[in-house]
Design a protein around this nucleic acid. Structure first.
Lengths: 226, 226
DNA sequence: ACAAAAGTGTTTAGATTACACCCATGA
DNA sequence: TCATGGGTGTAATCTAAACACTTTTGT
């Protein structure tokens, strides 16, 4: 312990890039900061790492407190540690990104905190380095989506291939050929066709699919080359 | 500051996965830990983040102090924050990986600290979670190698295509077809052929190449599909 | 019947793979 | 001249991309 004692201790925070999908758009959950500095400005959801928890646990705890959701997808993005990134005190922040189903989250819980889901194309200015955190998180999401279907995290249990394509178009901000996309996805053999149809978008109706349960991290070559 | 004060502060360390290439193998620089706990056991090179520096700067500083090298490739791997990962005290560690040219590093500086370059196939047990840090760093290296030639970081300025292939075989622990590898790399248009030959490996000799200077992060599709 | 979205098929271009073959050179 | 690695060429296969075409169904 002697050697350790000569070194400084730092506040360690986690900041969460909470992403969801709604109305053909990827949206980010933003909070008005409740204290100085930068009170009232938009920020990611954050909090401090306590003594008895890992950063992963801290992120999950904070996410639960403010959205009511548990057991959601959560992964490290990067650490941010410029000495003056927070003008009030030295805070080293570990950024995480979370994928949640907007249709399942606790709206009241979010509303209470004054939070809003903002389409990623129309983000306001964010405090500190939160813009960079978001950008890195989006790249991570694109990488994840390239190797596994993000349907499970961002879409309802059942979804049509058209919905899945639109999700991918939102993630990559790029259009995919409907026929080719469908063939590519089906060739992966990870989806199960249901007999139910979604008739809300057309007279013919589109079949619903769901992810096969035995598939974890699919060892796909690549879903989209981009 | 009031709100911050209610939260604990933590020691924040950086641990460096220092990788080099020698004798057709990727090697990891390991240090015998100089203090308790686990004194004498093998560990990554680490140190604490000070008040006036970012974690990136801390990693660069520590790397310079112990290998004599500056301006080397250094990138974040992940954070490690289990409350009891270091039994002596709560230490949150930010893992980095560095790519260095073994032929250029300061051998004396390394020797003094009792450090050794160990082939990654024959690693001893490492303390704490350092094994996991290494494994994640290797994945990062493979990703990087998939999108940019790592020749610049791990090989001398001039190298033959055979040397580059052997480097890639060491990184991916997988053999590549000599003819196909050469064509794929040359088709990227990022190498400049020199008139000099390396005659040490064969009677015919193999031409040296060097990376074209204007190429930064090449926007290659993929070098190897794996 | 027809409009409109869902879904299938076909054609072409390009990339990947395996592997045969030629080349240059020192002993 | 011949053994040895260095380097090139080619045919078979696979994949991606573009786009035309067929199917289904409520009105």
């Amino acid at each position: 312990m002697e050697l350790y004692k000569n070194h400084p201790r730092h506040f360690v925070a986690v900041d969460c890039v909470i992403l969801g999908y709604q109305d053909d758009e990827i949206k980010l959950l933003l909070y008005p900061r409740s204290f100085e500095p930068h009170k009232g400005e938009w920020s990611l959801l954050g909090g401090f790492v306590q003594d008895d928890e890992s950063a992963d646990e801290a992120a999950a705890r904070i996410l639960k407190q403010t959205t009511g959701l548990e057991q959601i997808f959560l992964e490290q993005v990067a650490s941010f540690s410029a000495p003056n990134r927070d003008p009030e005190a030295r805070v080293i922040s570990l950024a995480y990104y979370a994928l949640i189903r907007i249709d399942l989250h606790d709206e009241e819980c979010v509303r209470e905190n004054g939070a809003y889901w903002v389409p990623i194309r129309k983000l306001p200015n964010l405090i500190f380095d939160h813009q960079t955190m978001f950008e890195k998180a989006l790249v991570k999401l694109q990488q994840k989506a390239g190797y596994s279907l993000c349907g499970k995290e961002l879409l309802p249990e059942m979804f049509t291939l058209i919905q899945l394509r639109k999700l991918y178009e939102a993630i990559f901000q790029h259009e995919f050929d409907p026929g080719n996309f469908r063939k590519k996805i089906l060739s992966l053999g990870v989806l199960e066709k249901l007999s139910l149809k979604d008739a809300s978008e057309s007279r013919k109706g589109a079949f619903y699919y769901k992810a096969k349960s035995n598939i974890g991290e699919i060892d796909i070559d690549r879903i989209v080359k981009f």
